[in-house]
Design a protein around this nucleic acid. Structure first.
Lengths: 155, 155
DNA sequence: CTAAGTGCAAATTTTTTGCTTCTGC
DNA sequence: GCAGAAGCAAAAAATTTGCACTTAG
């Protein structure tokens, strides 16, 4: 479940390379913001990333975090996830995969083992509406942890 | 494509009935807010609904629109749609159906002819994550209108 | 009549921007 | 060295809330 340190380092260097290829400077701040995303499966929001990066770069500002996340999303190096109208969360895994959003605690989890091939091939039904370039699939409900907290204890 | 007046009236009376059943007062404001949603396929946001309803109820306030939309969503009489991090739009069609979000103009359109049965039956893959009660499927890309505007004209 | 709902104004929350200073390449 | 990036502070956008008055049932 957890991500190995080795794995993170691999992702970090491919991130640096990708920055160079995209003409982006690989600044200390960007590297650390990206590290937070690469190191977790939690899909944190901007505020959370800010709090965590600040432990290593105390002088970083929240707007740099926002600017960086937006930039990386534009460059398609990360994606936005989360429910409609809720605060935005980010995912460094850009391979398409569905999510589960908990309506109690807001947590976003990856859902493994669902084949999105047919949906990602952009079915004919779309042709009259527009030209798709991505697909997003998400379930909403109560996550196992929240269900346990409210259900088992019995008030 | 458009919605007939007859159709709207039918939806309005079933809305009134549903309010009663839910213990909600069928106020003038609520009826008109709901009418805006029932009368369009456009999935308007709160601000747009406010502007339109104000033509008929000039004294209505924006916060009443927000409060009402939130209430109706909690009671599952409408749903939220739109891309992550974008302003929330609403849909009075609560039958599950996928959407197409234009990344140029923000428009949200219904996608017809896609069977969501298998996804809505909440596949086994979900059981370890949580208990789902709804599913969202959305494509993102450039809608036919925006593509025409930017493509055909040729700058 | 009375609990629920509305309007108003002000507050909160989330995200963006202008400008000056700094730094990776 | 210089274009791009960061920091700061302030603004903007979206949404929510407290309270006194109004209204549907």
């Amino acid at each position: 479940m957890a991500i190995s340190g080795e794995d993170i380092e691999r992702r970090m260097s491919s991130f640096a390379a990708l920055c160079r290829r995209q003409g982006l400077k690989a600044t200390h701040q960007r590297m650390e913001i990206h590290r937070e995303l690469a190191a977790t499966l939690e899909h944190p929001d901007a505020e959370t990333i800010y709090r965590r990066v600040r432990r290593r770069i105390p002088a970083i500002s929240l707007d740099t975090v926002y600017r960086t996340l937006r930039l990386l999303e534009e460059k398609r190096m990360i994606t936005r996830v989360g429910g409609v109208g809720e605060r935005t969360r980010f995912d460094s895994n850009t391979e398409r995969h569905p999510h589960f959003v908990c309506t109690e605690c807001g947590t976003v989890s990856d859902v493994e083992g669902i084949e999105m091939g047919a949906l990602a091939d952009f079915p004919d039904a779309l042709s009259s509406v527009g030209e798709a370039d991505s697909v997003y699939l998400e379930w909403r409900g109560v996550c196992v942890r929240c269900r346990q907290d409210s259900g088992v204890a019995g008030a």
